[in-house]
């Protein structure tokens, strides 16, 4: 009896965990949509302020190609910036971890770089790289690497020094200790940052598009705003939200697969 109880306790945690990650937000979203639809109808809110979800849906369905193209473009910019930013973030964490002097010299600069508003920075990037996909990716990159660096360093500092000593007593080199101990040990912290960075990278890409482009969710947002196409604005918001959730979900899924041991040290 107790055997089946432990089995029952073990299995559903894994299965509902995976399906739940995808299903639960979707269910909540549907529920929220129904509530919003009802509220708009019951209180007679004008479309100018808040269109009904069904109106938003039909706006998307009217020109699905434009939204899909925008989604794809923004996704590419975000993904490129996010991946590059994450890799750069981890590399910088390793560099700062290995060389204390570099950390003292440059880490403050990292923090300062983040106090420059991305809007101010965006104009420069577009001047440098033109109205390209790459320019948007650069903005995404800029906005997403710092949390990765900070959290990876946090993960490194949480490594038990006795663990390092043990590896040294086996004659391990610094590179071996980094690969077999520090990097895996920092993974739980790293994923916290990656989830944050995925959302930030999307913001970077959308804001980047405002500086000039022809496709992308940011462009759709601006066009709809200039045309006072409220349903269009909301439609873009919905598509952006889907993209954001998709990215976050993908990172969470990877986290569950990779950091299977949890935060246990």
């Amino acid at each position: 009896m107790s055997g089946t109880a432990t089995l029952a306790a073990n299995l559903p945690v894994v299965s509902t965990g995976r399906i739940g990650v995808v299903l639960r937000p979707v269910l909540w979203l549907l529920l929220a949509l129904v509530v919003v639809e009802a509220v708009v109808v019951v209180f007679g809110i004008r479309t100018y302020y808040l269109p009904r979800p069904s109106v938003i849906a039909s706006t998307i369905m009217a020109t699905p190609g434009a939204y899909l193209a925008g989604l794809w473009r923004t996704f590419l910019e975000t993904a490129l910036g996010f991946v590059a930013g994450s890799m750069f973030g981890v590399v910088m964490a390793v560099v700062f971890h290995r060389w204390q002097t570099l950390r003292e010299l440059f880490f403050p600069l990292f923090i300062v770089s983040q106090t420059i508003p991305v809007i101010a920075f965006g104009a420069v990037v577009v001047l440098w790289f033109g109205n390209t996909l790459f320019a948007k990716a650069v903005i995404s990159f800029y906005i997403s690497f710092l949390p990765v660096t900070v959290n990876t360093m946090l993960g490194f500092s949480a490594v038990d020094p006795r663990q390092v000593q043990l590896m040294r007593s086996f004659g391990a080199s610094d590179a071996q200790i980094l690969r077999r101990l520090y990097l895996p040990a920092a993974l739980p912290q790293l994923f916290v940052a990656l989830k944050l960075a995925s959302s930030l990278a999307l913001v970077g890409a959308i804001v980047g598009e405002w500086f000039g482009d022809t496709t992308g969710l940011g462009v759709l947002l601006l066009q709809a705003m200039y045309n006072e196409n409220v349903a269009g604005i909301w439609a873009t918001i919905v598509v952006s939200a889907c993209l954001g959730m998709g990215l976050y979900g993908a990172v969470s899924y990877a986290e569950r697969r990779i950091v299977f041991w949890g935060g246990e040290q």
């Binding site: 038990d160 663990q163 043990l166 007593s169 101990l181 895996p184 949890g262 246990e264």
Partner: peptide, 14 residues
């Protein structure tokens, strides 16, 4: 040159 076992098992959880 010496095989060393500290007080805690220090197993790697992954």
């Amino acid at each position: 040159k010496v095989s060393f076992m500290p007080q805690r098992d220090l197993l790697l959880p992954w």
